[in-house]
Design a protein around this nucleic acid. Structure first.
Lengths: 223, 223
DNA sequence: TGTACATCAGTGAACGCGCGTTCACTGATGTAC
DNA sequence: TGTACATCAGTGAACGCGCGTTCACTGATGTAC
């Protein structure tokens, strides 16, 4: 049973992050200031230093949260689908990614937009970042039943095949390539939509994402 | 023949932008400050207001330059290729885009990264932004010789077909969809590479881009 | 159960800083007659 | 060609602002005996 002090501490930590997240929406990552968070919480700015000893530390916490939020949103949506319906699982995951991004544009920008100059992401963020990748890769892995990974010599050093195989299982080289392409395309898509590059060409992004992912699923050989 | 005054003015305008571009590299778009530009130029900060009456105006000029730089770099590379070799033209254009981005990461981030909060892009930037799109679309248009654009009813409102057709010509609907996918994928790719999301999976991005674009070219039906 | 001490949360003033923008000005360059 | 005036480039001081971070402090909450 957690002491009252520890409980209070956790509540405050969460409150700070929630407030910061809210402010992110109006000022962006670079404009996020500890003083404003404190003001918003009705507390002296120096009080925050009990919890996050630097602005970057708070930023890191937000980045971690964002990756995990996105990851679990995608996982939840995908988990609802029958395991055998690989194509439907891919649609569920990608649509969930897009929806999460639309609902949390500034947290999305935090992790997939321009990195903050001088900021260095610590290792735990890389781990959290892997959840979505693992999810997409897992679908491909499941679909690649009888495959075995044979890498053409010319492509041996192109990818980190061992790492990728941890995620896509025994999927064949072309499938792996299409898997990475799918991953890239989906986030390229969301970037474009969110950052305004579809203005003038794409009118119904949700439907278009579905069509694009369908094409990619064909290439991935998903039923 | 331009008067000495006008000439001086143009030199100063260019010098300001060049200096700002240089500073972009160390501080990012948000950290760009008029005062620092002035300091770097050895001039009073108020002097800059003769040329750009606001920080946003300078930012807009840089964005415009970036789009045009990228556009002409891609155009130059693509123009060197035999008109009939559509696939080679696509490779030339996409590799040029990637190379330009690597050489000008902060200018790239300025146009394809997180938008600056509250900043509104004026119309001329949209025009400049179209150069790359037009280039990629033009290749597809050329390759789509005998095509005619027939849009399935279900997809009628999905895209702004008229606008897109201005670029891709009479290419068939599936080809148009793959063209937009290619565009999205290429910039998603460059984003991922530049912003560090390929760490741990892609080891040779240039080669990988070539492979991915080759696959896309297959789908586009390019010879 | 009661007291003495250590730990922690939060305060408020202060530090030094850099920013965008305005303003009244000086001096040089161009223009009109 | 020479003078009178208008235009422009650049100066330097000042405005009001918000920032991250530090520090000595108060008071409340927990811990040990």
């Amino acid at each position: 049973v957690a002491g009252a002090r520890e409980e209070h501490r956790n509540r405050q930590l969460a409150l700070i992050r929630d407030t910061a997240r809210r402010l992110l929406a109006t000022h962006g990552a670079q404009g996020l200031s500890l003083r404003e968070v404190a003001r918003e919480m009705g507390v002296a700015s120096s009080a925050l230093y009990r919890y996050y000893s630097t602005r970057d530390e708070l930023l890191t916490a937000l980045i971690l949260d964002a990756y995990n939020d996105l990851g679990s949103a995608a996982e939840r949506a995908e988990a609802k689908i029958d395991r055998g319906s690989h194509r439907a699982r891919l649609h569920a995951a990608t649509q969930a990614i897009r929806r999460w991004a639309l609902r949390h544009p500034h947290e999305y920008a935090l992790i997939f937009g321009t990195p903050v100059p001088q900021y260095v992401a610590p290792d735990d963020t890389i781990l959290a970042a892997g959840r979505v990748t693992a999810l997409l890769g897992g679908i491909v892995a499941d679909a690649a039943g009888g495959d075995t990974l044979v890498v053409p010599p010319a492509q041996r050093t192109m990818l980190e095949w061992e790492n990728v195989a941890l995620v896509t299982g025994s999927a064949s080289a072309p499938r792996v390539i299409w898997a990475l392409t799918t991953w890239t395309t989906v986030f390229g898509f969301v970037n474009f939509e969110l950052f305004g590059h579809f203005v003038g060409s794409v009118r119904k992004p949700e439907q278009f994402l579905r069509v694009v992912v369908d094409e990619l699923a064909d290439q991935l050989g998903l039923r």
